[in-house]
Each structure stands twice: as C-alpha cells, then as structure tokens.
Simulated assay, not measured.
Amino acid sequence: MYWKAKTISHKKEKRIAVYFEKNTELITRIKQIEGARWSQSLAAWHIPDTEQNRIRFKIPPLSHIIPSAEGIEQIKKFKQWLRSKRYSESTITTYTEALKSFLVFYREKPIAEITNEDVIVYNNEYILKNNLSASYQNQIVNAIKLFFQTIQETKMMVDKIHRPKRAKLLPNVLSKEEIKLILNAHSNIKHKTMLSLIYSCGLRRSELLNLKPADIDSKRGIVIIRQAKGKKDRIAPLSPKILEMLREYYVISKPKTWLFEGQNIGEHYSEQSLQSVLKQALQKVGNTKPVTLHWLRHSYATHLLENGTDLRYIQELLGHSSSKTTEIYTHVSTKSIQQIKSPFDDL
C-alpha cells in the first residue's frame, strides 16, 4: 500500500497532505483521524500538523527539525544578549529552546516578516493541537517578546503579543501531621536533614542544593539563601531543632564545598536523588499523594499563615517579588474556614 505524506500550508493552516492511489481501506483509516479533510484542489487528504500525526506518517517531529540558517544565527545572538543581561543559564536554556520551537514552525519565513498574527496561528496550530500546557505557552510568549525586542527590522508589535489565560490553581498543602510523618520517615540523618530544612525554611529545591556550610549562621540563627530566583539574596530564620540536626549531620558527613554533597566530595547532590529521598519517605509512611518537594514549601507558607504570621513577612521569607504570589496561600489556609459553621448543622 503506497502513500506519501508532506507538510503543507493550506488556507493559512499548517497541514499534512497524504497522497495515495484510491484505496478504500486507506480512506477508511484516514477518515478516523480527527480533523481529516479531502481537498479537491490538492487531490489529497490532509490532516492537522501535530506531533502525533507526524509520527504516524513518518514525518520528523518539529522537535527534531532545526530552524533556518537565519533562525540559528538569531538564536545564537539572542543567547548572547540574554547572557549580557545576566539571565541565569537555566532561564537562557528555557528561552532559547522555546524560541527554537517557534522559529522551526516558521523556518520558511524570513524573521523580519513574522507578525503578531503568526503567533496566534502558532498557538492554535502547534500549542493547542498538541495539547501543550498554558505554562509552556507562556514560556514561548516570554521568549518571543524578549527576542523581538532585540530585532531592529520587524513587523512584530511586542506589546500586543497576548498571553494565555492562566489557570488559577491552588497550591498543594499537607497537614502538620502529614509533614511530621514524612520528615521522621528516614533514619539516615542526611536525608532527614535535607527534607526538614526545605520545610523549616520554605526552600526551593535548587536553594537547598546550593547552600554552603557558611550559609548556616548559627550565632544569628539564620540561613542565608544566596542568588535565589531573580538573583536575590534573602535570609530565613533557623529553627533551634534544625540547628541541632544540622550539627549532628555535620559531624557525620563533614561537607566541604556544598552543605549537601553527592557521592564525591565537592560535587552537588543531584535534584533527582533529592526527589528520590522524598519518594522513599512517602513510601515508608504510606502516603499515596503525588507529593513533590515544592509541596513542603507550600505547606511551610500556609502553616506560617495559620500561625498568625503577617503576609508581608511570608512574602520576604519565600522571596516573592509580588505580594499577589503570596496571597494565594490565604485561599488554602483552613484556620478561618474551619470557624465558619455550615447551615447544614442547624437542620
């Protein structure tokens, strides 16, 4: 059964045209693909250009295609511009990969000719058709906005590039009882201390792994978190119980460069290993929730709020740039909600 397929632009849509001699079985199969249509002018069936359909008809996925020579050169320049602005390497990677995806989609079009309308087409024909998340779409928008600020000759109106409407999701929070079980699950002092320090100081995963022994200031009773998200330093209060645990850990492990090191002296403890430490703790206590390390940070913030800590202090402790980010914890705090009496109780 011979057929050939290729990507096309049909009525301003990215499609995959499938050509074959008239065959009842093939027609039946292609009709079952969502969005399949027959074109008299093309004398071919055509289907949406999605990653799934590319795999189905042996067309290289967009992720395997490189941009045009112009696109490659511009991505290189964009990366240099981001570095000159002192963006972190992880942010540079995120933005350049996102931009690459967009420029691959328009690899046949000169960059100076790309317009705001093309962003809308990309969102509909690539992001939505491949069921990619709103957060990924937002990364693309960030990358496109920054990139076109660096382009002198462009038809793009950066200020009019719209963002996806973000889902208002509540942070996942564990009860104090659940936290206690998880933190006490490990007998290994290193594993126990890492998880406890994340919760007791509201740390991000990367913040914990980038701590150095000198960042624990026992005399002042604080932890110094250096060059965290947004390249900001901040401090967090150090619990006396955590300090005691850290001293015990320090005597046993004697870390050199990093507070928590990998198997070799001076090497970072890996993010995957840290996630595995949490996973093992959850298995030991029989907690089947899809808990991540960030849940410990969310729980820290919510428990502070329930203990009566002012939101402004919580914002400082978490290192949030905007108070709006911190305010979301008011929606998951149960202290006030539990005092509300349901009318059901009066029936």
Rank of each mutant, 00 (worst) to 15 (best):
I216H: 02
M194D: 06
I140H: 12
I242F: 00
K176Y: 00
N53D: 06
R247M: 11
Q149I: 05
Q280D: 11
N124W: 00
E261V: 01
K229A: 02
T7P: 11
K180W: 03
D118A: 06
S218T: 14
S187W: 07
D310S: 09
K77Q: 15
N287W: 00
E261G: 07
I114R: 08
R37W: 00
S333A: 15
Q80P: 01
T325L: 04
N131G: 13
I55M: 11
H331A: 07
G262N: 05
V332I: 11
M156G: 01
P67K: 04
A44K: 12
V285N: 05
K145Y: 06
S342I: 01
K324S: 15
K31E: 14
N184A: 14
K11T: 02
S321E: 14
Y300V: 02
Y300M: 03
V277I: 15
S196T: 15
S88L: 03
T334M: 14
G319N: 09
V141K: 10
L132C: 07
R247A: 11
T154F: 06
S68D: 05
F102Y: 15
I265P: 10
D310W: 02
W295P: 04
T154D: 08
E21Q: 14
Y2S: 06
S196V: 10
I337W: 04
A98L: 08
K129Y: 00
F260Q: 11
S133C: 05
G221W: 10
K324N: 13
N172A: 09
T93L: 12
S63A: 14
M1W: 01
Q315A: 08
Q80C: 06
D49I: 06
P164V: 10
S133D: 12
A5T: 02
D345N: 14
N138F: 05
L169S: 04
T330N: 03
L82P: 01
H331C: 02
D215N: 15
F260R: 12
L103V: 05
I161A: 04
K76T: 12
I16H: 03
L274R: 09
S88Q: 12
H162M: 06
Y87W: 09
R247Y: 08
I151F: 05
R234L: 12
Q280P: 00
K165A: 09
D346F: 13
P290S: 13
L274Q: 07
L305A: 07
S187A: 12
K58C: 04
Y2A: 01
K4D: 12
N116W: 06
V332H: 05
S41G: 03
D310A: 08
A143C: 07
L304D: 08
K229W: 03
T154P: 10
I30Q: 03
N287C: 15
A214N: 13
E108S: 13
L169P: 00
L128Q: 13
L146T: 04
Q283V: 03
Q283G: 07
S200R: 05
Y19H: 12
A167F: 08
L128H: 07
Q80I: 07
P61Y: 13
M157A: 08
Y2H: 11
G319K: 11
E248S: 13
I120D: 10
Y250E: 12
E70T: 07
G319D: 06
Q227C: 02
L208Q: 11
H46C: 09
I120Q: 12
T24I: 06
K129G: 01
D310T: 06
K160Q: 14
R83M: 11
K109R: 15
K231I: 01
F344Y: 11
P213E: 04
T292Y: 04
E306D: 09
T257W: 03
R83V: 12
Q152G: 05
F20H: 02
E207I: 09
I114H: 08
